[in-house]
Amino acid sequence: MHKRAESRPGLARPQSFSNSESLRAAQMYYLQDLTMDAIARELHTSRSTVSRLLASARQSGLVQIQIRSPQERTPELERQIRARYRVDAHVVPVPDTLNEGEVLERVAMQAARTIGPLVDSNAVIGVAWGSTLSAVSRHLVPKPTHDCTIVQLNGAGNTRTSGIAYASEILRRFGQAYGARVVQFPVPAFFDRASTKQAMWAERSVRRILELQEKMTMAIFSVGSIDSDVPSHVYSGGYLDDSELDSLAQGNVVGDVATVFFRADGKDRGIPLNERTSGPPLALLSSIRRRVCVVSGPSKINGLLGALAAGLATELILDEATARRLVEADAGRKPPAGPL
């Protein structure tokens, strides 16, 4: 427990609280239904201190508040998505008047608070880079863990930039939030030749990271979509030239996860770019025990349908409009067969 500095006349002193202090106050307030006055008497402190203890509990992630209105459609949408895709769905209610950038911020904020309780000590967590994960990383709630590792899922370099600064900032935020070790993957997002990738994958320094990815207990990613209103970073950041984009269109590719492309049925075989990508095989992703997919914007619906067909998610966090599109678009289709 933190020691409190003695108060001195005329001087205001800042207060910091330990998790145990905040947790005790939160349990009495939220679980035992005690008033703040009653808690103050029991803890021999002031009502204002109790208020600050409760605020500290919320800010540190010890307390998460969920509001369920009987008028909202989100619980029913979540039920339908869970039943259909066997995923734990979290639908973020947002008004239709918001633009996609504003919706992304709302989704990212709730995703960050949903991910926190899922993170355990001794975990190996794969994190992809991109616009959605960058937004999520800005809202993460600190949660101390022991012996936790954050590993980059795919390389970020291209012909314009190394991508290190962009990807490393996302990883740094995740590592800082959970007190975790960060392992970067300093390779190109796409190799020029498949033979170069094969040679690189044989190097011991790269094998170390690939072997760590094989030990992942959790993966956090979004879905890239070619026809999204807000283009995914891989399609707008100089990673693909016109001929490669044409090749994806001709191959009926609907999206990607961590720069691994797939079609509407979730299959990734026979897509030439996948032979040169640094992203993990979909078979590896689908074998991870916990797979958190964050999606914002109904224009990503085709990519999301493909990812769900591939069985890539166990937890799905998405906005209400996208959830409605998902339920409507999938009406009458057969349930996904499961992982590749």
Rank of each mutant, 00 (worst) to 15 (best):
P117F: 13
P272M: 15
S287Y: 14
L305A: 10
P280F: 06
S232P: 04
Q110P: 01
T217E: 08
V119H: 01
S56A: 15
V87I: 15
L43G: 05
E211W: 14
G175A: 06
I226K: 06
R138Y: 09
A38N: 07
G238D: 08
S168F: 08
V257Y: 00
L248D: 02
G10T: 08
N19M: 05
T322W: 04
L210K: 03
D241L: 06
S56E: 15
D319I: 07
R41H: 15
S7M: 07
P281H: 07
A83K: 05
E275L: 15
V294K: 01
F262G: 05
M218G: 05
K215P: 00
E76P: 04
A12M: 11
V253C: 03
A219Q: 04
G61T: 09
L340N: 05
E244T: 12
W201V: 14
C293Y: 02
Q184P: 01
A329Y: 05
G332A: 13
G116K: 05
R73H: 13
S16P: 00
V103W: 05
S278A: 13
R47A: 15
Y85H: 00
I81C: 06
L210N: 04
A321G: 09
N154G: 03
H146W: 01
I170V: 13
A180L: 09
L273Q: 04
L31C: 07
P280E: 04
S22L: 10
D242A: 15
P117E: 09
V187L: 08
A89F: 14
A283S: 14
P75W: 04
W201L: 10
I170E: 02
D256Q: 02
V107E: 00
S225L: 04
L171K: 06
I301H: 03
P335V: 10
L240G: 00
V253K: 00
R325Q: 13
F190A: 10
